[in-house]
Each structure stands twice: as C-alpha cells, then as structure tokens.
Amino acid sequence: MILPIITYPNKQLKTRSAEVTSFDQLLHRFLDDMYETMMSSNGIGLAAIQVANPIRALILCIPDEEGNQTQENLLEIINPSICDPKGNTLYQEGCLSVPGFYEDVERYESLTLHYQNRHGESCTLEANDLLAIAIQHEMDHLEGKLFIEKLTYNRRKKFEKEYKKALKEKK
C-alpha cells in the first residue's frame, strides 16, 4: 500500500522517533508499505516518520551501476546507531519531504552502522559514498531534522525564499 508522504513544513517531521521494540507482522507489513511508497516516489531512502510513523526505522535502496533499484539491494534499518565515522564529503541532497529542492550538504564519507533487521537480529554494515550519505540523511529524520537545517544561514534564507515562491506558484 502506498502511504502519504508528509512534507515540509509539517510539524510531525520534527518528531524524534521512538525505538522499535516489536518485530512483528505489523512492522513487516509497514516496511513493505514503506518500500512501495519509496519506489513509487522515485526515492532512494525513506524514514518511517516521513509517512507519519514516529519509529526508528528507515529503508534504503541505492541504485546499482546501471541505475536500477532492485529489492535485493533493499536495506531495512531499525534502531540504527553510527560508530567510527570518517572523513567529510559534500553531496547534493534532495528529500521526498522537501520536494523539488536540492542542496549541497556536508556529511561523513564513511561509517560503521549497527542496526537491527525486520526480525530484530543485530547487524553491522560498513558504508561509504552514497550509502553512507543516505544513511545519515535518513537517520537525521529519526531525530526530527531535515537536510535544509544543515545549510548555511544564507543558503537557508535562499531556500525559504524559493520555497515560498514555489508555494505561490502552486496556488
């Protein structure tokens, strides 16, 4: 089932997500719905809070070399924590909750991620490049933060101006 994605400036996006403690059929169905929602929106990542569920769950599906996103590449990440981040990189990010806006954001270049899968099993993942960036972007959502909050003062003002203009054009 495709779920509605909440968008900026919806206050729900500011919610800090709660730890997942129940790894049941309800969670599995929700993760499946998140995948369907993300794929139908041409996203590479989606946090549960973006579909109005404040739990510490996110999914990622990084395209392969040909640009294809396959279910085999799907990562379901629950209760994540980052350790051993290294380096810095600048990457142009967008967000399904801030449609139509892209900005350069500084992130760690590589990291180690500890998380649980849909069955509650502990997992560890070494991530770099786009995967590391996407993990950090989606984990920010779990803390109630958007990528636009990482912009410099001037770029944030520019975003606000463009956003207001885009809203007027929609009316």
Rank of each mutant, 00 (worst) to 15 (best):
L3N: 05
P4G: 08
P4N: 12
I5E: 04
T7K: 11
N10Y: 06
K11V: 13
K11C: 04
Q12H: 09
L13P: 02
L13K: 02
L13A: 07
K14L: 08
K14F: 07
T15N: 14
R16T: 04
S17N: 06
A18Q: 15
E19D: 10
E19M: 13
V20L: 14
F23H: 06
D24S: 09
Q25K: 15
L26I: 07
L26F: 11
L27E: 05
H28W: 14
H28N: 09
R29N: 10
R29P: 01
F30N: 04
L31Q: 04
D33H: 11
D33G: 10
M34H: 03
M34D: 00
M34N: 04
M39F: 07
S40Q: 11
S41D: 12
G43P: 01
G43R: 04
I44N: 00
G45F: 04
A47W: 01
A47K: 01
A48Y: 03
A48G: 03
V51F: 00
A52L: 05
N53V: 09
P54G: 08
I55Q: 10
R56F: 09
R56V: 03
R56I: 01
R56Q: 14
A57W: 13
I59F: 05
I59V: 12
L60K: 00
C61T: 06
I62C: 08
I62H: 01
I62P: 00
P63V: 13
D64Q: 06
E65V: 13
E65K: 12
E66K: 12
G67S: 14
N68W: 03
T70M: 06
T70R: 04
Q71M: 10
Q71I: 14
Q71K: 14
N73I: 02
N73M: 07
E76N: 08
I77W: 02
I78L: 12
N79G: 13
N79K: 06
P80I: 03
S81M: 12
I82F: 02
C83G: 09
D84N: 15
D84Y: 07
D84H: 12
D84F: 08
P85F: 02
P85S: 10
K86F: 12
K86S: 08
N88G: 15
L90S: 13
L90H: 14
L90R: 13
Y91F: 15
Q92C: 10
Q92N: 09
Q92W: 09
Q92K: 15
E93C: 10
L96K: 01
S97T: 09
V98R: 01
P99N: 12
P99D: 12
F101A: 08
F101N: 05
F101C: 11
E103P: 15
V105Y: 02
Y108E: 06
Y108R: 05
E109G: 10
L111I: 15
T112M: 06
T112L: 07
L113Y: 03
L113N: 00
Y115T: 04
Q116S: 11
Q116E: 11
R118C: 00
H119M: 13
H119N: 14
H119G: 05
G120E: 05
E121F: 10
E121K: 15
C123P: 14
T124Y: 11
L125S: 00
N128S: 15
N128T: 07
